[in-house]
Computed example of a mutant assay.
Amino acid sequence: MTAEQEKRVKELKRELECWREEVLALNSVLAWEKHWYPWLLIGISTTLFTFLWYLDMSVLSTVAVACLVVTAVDYLGPIARTSICARDSWSGAKERQLEDVCRALARTEHQVLSCWKSRQSIKAAWPHLYVVVEVIGLACLAYIGYTVNNMFLSYLLVTTALMLPGLKHSGFLCKLSSDVKTTFSSSIKMKKN
């Protein structure tokens, strides 16, 4: 990691100091450290979206309720943790786990920023190609949004986002990308012959 990324890791550790136990528990669930965690994530997502579908709230009401829940958790979380967890339960192993989580977050943040910079450089180098690709991509997204229920699309997006860390941690994404690359390269070789 670069010095800038190490600095970001230290900043993240400082920012997450109040929530370190919760961060480790959330990381454990998102990384699928137990075989039933993926099903738990899907169940939570399905229950949440079924509840939202049943209530049929407006967007403003949904945002307000979500902000209320976040505020309540932000206020009550540390209070509940001090009464449940012992102060001396934090160990060196947990500190290393927290640092690993912060490193992963810093890496992900760096990857997102580098993708954005790549997009900007493509925009500067090939503006016409950029516009064509953006227009086609956004038109496809608009068509999908028009034909498929918004609640279902949101459900798929949130569930996929919840599953991605576990898929990456288990190595499934690397295997899938290598299989796609192999298939793509072999199909190109077959076309050349």
Rank of each mutant, 00 (worst) to 15 (best):
N150E: 13
A124I: 03
I79S: 00
H128L: 10
S178N: 07
W116H: 10
P165W: 07
P165D: 05
H169F: 15
L52E: 08
C102K: 01
G145A: 07
L76T: 02
A93L: 11
R96F: 01
R14W: 01
K181V: 11
L16N: 06
I84M: 10
K175N: 08
A139M: 11
V112P: 03
V112S: 09
M151P: 02
L173D: 06
N27W: 10
G92C: 06
A106P: 06
S91V: 01
V73G: 00
G92H: 08
L30H: 14
W32I: 02
W32V: 04
V65F: 08
V63D: 10
S91A: 00
L113C: 00
W126F: 12
S114Y: 06
T47F: 15
V132E: 04
A106E: 06
S45T: 09
I136H: 04
G43C: 10
L48C: 03
T47P: 00
A64M: 11
V133I: 14
I42D: 01
A72S: 11
A139Y: 00
A66Q: 09
W116L: 12
S89C: 07
D100V: 07
L176F: 14
D56W: 01
W36R: 09
K10V: 06
S186Q: 12
V112N: 02
D179H: 11
V131R: 15
C67E: 09
I79M: 07
E17Y: 08
Q111H: 14
I122K: 13
V59L: 15
T46D: 08
A104E: 10
T159H: 03
R20C: 04
A161E: 09
L68M: 08
L164E: 06
C18Y: 11
R87L: 13
L113N: 06
T160R: 03
S89T: 11
A142G: 13
I42R: 01
T50D: 10
E99V: 00
A80K: 03
V23I: 15
S45L: 05
A72G: 09
W126T: 13
D74H: 07
A125M: 10
D88Q: 11
K7P: 02
L105C: 08
L129N: 11
H35C: 07
S186I: 00
H128Q: 11
C18S: 12
Y143E: 05
G92D: 13
L141K: 14
E4Q: 14
V73T: 04
E17W: 02
V59G: 09
V9Y: 03
S178G: 00
Y143W: 14
L167Y: 05
I42W: 04
F172L: 11
Q97Y: 02
M57P: 01
T50H: 09
R96V: 13
A25W: 05
I79K: 15
V180C: 07
A139H: 05
R119I: 12
A142I: 03
L12C: 01
T62V: 09
Y54E: 04
R8W: 04
L162T: 01
A106H: 04
H110V: 00
E109R: 13
K181Q: 14
Q111I: 10
D100I: 07
